[in-house]
Computed example of a mutant assay.
Amino acid sequence: MSNSTNTQPESLHIVCPHCDAVNRVPSAKLSAQPVCGKCQKALFTGAPVDLASARFQKHIERSDIPVLVDFWAPWCGPCRTMAPFYAQAAQRLEPQFRVVKVDAEQAQDLAARYAIRSIPTLALFKGGREVARQPGAMDAQNIIAWATQNNR
């Protein structure tokens, strides 16, 4: 039994984590390790993508898959503790999610724009809009569960 409200579009726009080109990928091929049409590198690396201001906007606005963002800073102990768990979560969440890290110290404009008051903070974006937020460090299982639950 299929539910027409739950069907994925025939193809999705995926922003390349390497060159930021927008690629159209058939939904059925999302898990088949697609490569960028421009730079020929993998569209999904199984690791968080470090993004700064201009690149960040393109990824959240042009990607048809949800973008999970970790706002963090290198001096933050809980951020450093969560980093390996976030990397593990990226391996499990891709290609259904783009998993991103934003250094709030380097990208202070983004931290201000999204009113990041504590780090680490996870934020989930869909269609260019923030749909969920969770401050505080989590392990990989909880990151995956939180992202999946808030993507419904």
Rank of each mutant, 00 (worst) to 15 (best):
Q33I: 01
K41V: 00
S31Y: 14
Q40A: 14
A21I: 00
G37Q: 07
V35M: 07
K38H: 14
G46C: 07
A21Q: 10
N23A: 00
C16Y: 00
V49L: 15
A47T: 09
V22Q: 09
D20T: 12
V25P: 04
H13D: 11
Q40L: 13
S27I: 03
D20E: 14
R24G: 09
I14S: 01
L43V: 01
C19M: 08
A32Q: 14
P17L: 03
V15L: 10
S27R: 12
A21H: 10
A42D: 11
L30E: 03
P17N: 03
V49Q: 13
P34D: 01
V22E: 09
P26E: 11
G46M: 06
A32W: 11
C19E: 04
K41D: 07
A47D: 13
P17G: 03
P48Q: 02
R24D: 12
R24I: 07
A28K: 15
L12M: 13
V15A: 09
C16W: 01
R24F: 08
V35H: 10
P34I: 00
F44D: 02
V25R: 05
N23T: 00
P26G: 05
V49K: 12
H13S: 15
S31L: 13
R24Q: 15
P17D: 02
G46Q: 07
K41G: 03
V25F: 08
N23L: 00
V49D: 09
L30M: 15
K29N: 13
C39D: 09
T45N: 12
V15D: 03
C36S: 04
K41A: 07
C39M: 05
A42I: 02
Q40H: 13
T45W: 06
V35F: 06
V49A: 12
C16M: 06
I14A: 03
A42M: 10
V35Y: 06
P17K: 03
V22G: 06
C19P: 09
H18A: 05
K38N: 13
A47Y: 10
A28V: 12
H13K: 15
K29M: 14
F44W: 05
P17Q: 01
V35C: 10
A28P: 09
G37A: 06
S27N: 10
V15K: 09
G46L: 04
L43T: 02
P26D: 12
G37P: 02
P34Y: 01
L43D: 01
H18D: 08
V22F: 06
C36L: 01
V15N: 07
C36Y: 00
K29S: 14
Q40V: 04
D20C: 15
C16N: 02
N23Q: 05
Q40I: 00
P48K: 04
C16E: 01
P48L: 04
